[in-house]
Simulated assay, not measured.
Amino acid sequence: MNDKHHDVFASAFEAIKRARDVAQAIVAIKDAYGVDHVTYHMAHMISGNYDQPFVRTTYPDSWVSRYLQHGYVKVDPVVQEGFVRQLPFEWREVTMTDAALVLMQDALAHGLAMNGYSVPIVDKVGRRALFSLNTSMADEDWTAFVSGEAEHLSELGHRLHRLAVFEVYGEHDPVPRIGPRERECLALAAQGKEYTVIAQLLDLSEHTVRAYLKSARLKLDCSNIPQAVGKAVKLRIISL
């Protein structure tokens, strides 16, 4: 491993650990790597009865305001693709619609650069987030940067996500760790499937299906399966 790359990564990683919040952490990452801007975006957060995105960025307030006023999040290809992709990607890979081109031209007119790299994050309870860097580096330099730092950037993104979850929820994260089989059983129960049908669909015994659903119900702190399904939907563990 290149010592220079490792030193920069170690510095950024320790800065995230020391940071009081995500806003401070992304500034530290920006400074460590010498990029123009860094953004962290958790798709949705559940806090009480609120369901809203959690976003921290180093972009100037004037651009953030313009971005929101024009509803650019609805056409931003980095956001739209980033929350369905599984692997990190360079922005030049995204599909550019006519609306996206308008966004990009507006960003250029406001002095923002077009080269970027995003790391999609899916945690153990299914929350999705996106960690992105934006730079005015020349294409050749940027390609070399991504090639050398991709693994480190993925680690930093996941460490940043842990900091974000703690910032939002503290020690009381409302989303329990529901296993894949528990999630599958809940999703099918949400569709109105009976135990016997779920067992057939998943190639499990009815006893095993009942055990998975009971386990999920207890983790969700509910007294019955309909309540557990409703809570799982609210917490975005499953979708209807």
Rank of each mutant, 00 (worst) to 15 (best):
A109I: 04
A228W: 00
L156C: 06
M42N: 03
L133N: 00
K234S: 11
V84G: 12
L188R: 05
Q69V: 03
S11N: 04
L101K: 07
D21S: 02
D51K: 10
M114D: 13
G157A: 12
L156F: 02
R210V: 02
L153E: 05
I121K: 06
T57D: 03
V119I: 11
S154C: 07
E171N: 14
L220A: 10
L186P: 11
D203Q: 15
T39D: 01
H37L: 04
P60M: 09
M114A: 14
Q105T: 15
H5R: 03
T196Y: 15
L163H: 10
S118F: 05
I237N: 13
G82K: 03
L218N: 09
R217D: 00
S205D: 04
A150I: 03
P180A: 15
A10H: 09
K193A: 13
Y72I: 02
G111D: 06
C222Y: 00
N224G: 06
A107L: 05
N49C: 08
A23Q: 05
D203Y: 15
N134Q: 09
V84P: 06
L153W: 02
Y50K: 12
P77N: 01
V209D: 01
D31M: 08
H161C: 13
D76M: 09
M137E: 10
E171K: 14
V197H: 11
Y59N: 04
L160W: 05
P176S: 14
D31R: 13
G179C: 06
Q200D: 10
F89Y: 13
H37M: 06
A187W: 12
E182G: 11
E155N: 08
E93R: 08
N2C: 12
A32F: 00
Q80P: 08
A107V: 01
Y59I: 01
V168K: 13
T58P: 00
Y72A: 04
E171D: 15
A99R: 12
Q80K: 14
Y67D: 04
F13T: 08
D36F: 06
F145A: 03
H110P: 06
Y72E: 11
G48W: 08
K4V: 15
G111W: 02
A189N: 12
A32Q: 00
A25N: 03
H70A: 04
Y72K: 12
V119W: 02
A199C: 09
K214Y: 08
S154W: 02
L68E: 13
Y212P: 05
F166G: 00
G179Y: 12
D76G: 06
G148Q: 05
S62Y: 09
H44E: 07
L153S: 06
R18W: 02
V38N: 08
V78W: 01
I238M: 10
K74Q: 10
N115G: 07
D3N: 03
R92A: 14
T58S: 06
M137Q: 07
